[in-house]
């Protein structure tokens, strides 16, 4: 049995300790996950524009085609919709394609296949066909990326039934979530973040999976619940740590996946702290912040001691220039200021 099928059958989700061990960069962790998947399961494909060029998708795919061959690791035509459909058809017939894009902006060209086909086929044919595919892209930020190279579009996909959406924040999770996504029998979209790729961290060798749909506490505190994913975690943790001297502590929850959304961990924490701040890399309106805000209002309104707050992007396209970017994006200082305000206004 291929490893993916075996893992699904066993429901195994072992999580080795992340405290100490071998240090890898975020990109090396992703590369190792892809190499492992290719090694163990001949049905895994890695494709995308540039996956075997010298830059290797920021290094994520470096060396893979040399080792596993151009039939399974291949550069593609610039045909986002076509290739998304081709990946879908391949997945429907038992392959496990991992289709990479260097920016989420390019996924918008493929929404017809992703939203209207890949995510609905299992439902439409009454459960007979599975679509085990992974769609990966890296959110850009800064350095002039601008309105068309730095969009964080997870909010647009959040309401699509049949999809799963993964947003890792650490090298450990980047590998473990990638392996879970490849082993999953549904279309899974992974949004990594270019700024997460600056990190190094503990990454165990070999196979392990981080389960989809389960959040994790990155800090424990009493005054507030701070929820985020991906690059926002680094900012959130820096903000919370900077307030320690002022006697402010907070729960920091890393959701790891936004679909399925771990509502339980959010409500559990909120019931203790009574206050919640949601931080996202995407737009505030109609996105992850909005959804979690609504979830809390529905399920835990009477536990709230202060209005729900969110920090995402304003209802404005990403600017390209450096100065405008500083006004546009969240940063630890902005987050710390909001926390201070929320905690001190008793």
């Amino acid at each position: 049995m291929p490893w993916a099928a075996a893992l699904i059958a066993s429901k195994e989700t072992s999580i080795p300790s992340a405290e100490e061990g071998r240090i890898l960069s975020y990109v090396e962790a992703l590369n190792e996950a892809l190499a492992l998947a290719l090694e163990i399961d001949p049905h895994v494909l890695v494709l995308g524009q540039g996956v075997n060029d010298p830059k290797g998708m920021f290094g994520v795919t470096t060396g893979l085609s040399a080792k596993y061959g151009n039939a399974r690791v291949f550069d593609t035509p610039l045909s986002e919709e076509g290739m998304m459909g081709i990946s879908t058809g391949a997945a429907m017939n038992g392959l496990r394609p991992v289709y990479l894009h260097n920016r989420p902006d390019f996924l918008l060209l493929a929404f017809n296949q992703l939203v209207t086909h890949a995510s609905k086929i299992h439902f439409m044919d009454n459960g007979k066909t599975k679509v085990p595919m992974v769609v990966w892209s890296a959110i850009g930020r800064g350095w002039g990326s601008g309105a068309q190279h730095s969009q964080a579009i997870q909010g647009l996909l959040l309401g699509v039934p049949g999809l799963k959406i993964v947003m890792p924040s650490t090298p450990y999770d980047a590998k473990g979530l990638m392996l879970s996504a490849i082993a999953d029998n549904n279309p899974v979209v992974i949004f990594d973040h270019r700024w997460c790729m600056r990190q190094n961290g503990v990454v165990p060798e070999g196979m392990y999976q981080v389960p989809l749909g389960r959040g994790v506490y990155r800090r424990n505190g009493r005054d507030l619940t701070l929820v985020g994913t991906s690059h926002t975690l680094e900012m959130a943790i820096n903000a919370v740590d900077s307030l320690e001297g002022e006697g402010i502590t907070a729960d920091v929850i890393d959701l790891r996946t936004i679909k399925p959304l771990d509502g339980e961990i959010i409500i559990e924490s909120l019931k203790r702290t009574g206050k919640i701040l949601v931080v996202d890399t995407g737009w505030e309106m109609g996105g992850v912040c909005a959804e979690i805000g609504c979830l809390v209002a529905e399920k835990a309104f009477y536990d709230l001691k202060a209005p729900i707050k969110r920090i995402g992007l304003p209802d404005v396209p990403s600017p390209a220039g450096f100065t405008l970017e500083q006004f546009y994006y969240p940063n630890p200082e902005k987050i710390a200021n909001v926390i201070r305000e929320m905690v001190c206004k008793q």
């Binding site: 459909g85 879908t88 296949q113 086929i121 044919d125």
Partner: peptide
């Protein structure tokens, strides 16, 4: 194996099926 109500929607999918047939 599949049909789409979006014009041309099933064509890339069919092509992906052919890719699988070739690879294996």
């Amino acid at each position: 194996a599949g049909s789409s109500a979006i014009v041309a929607g099933a064509i890339p999918i069919a092509t992906g099926a052919a890719l699988k047939a070739q690879l294996t």
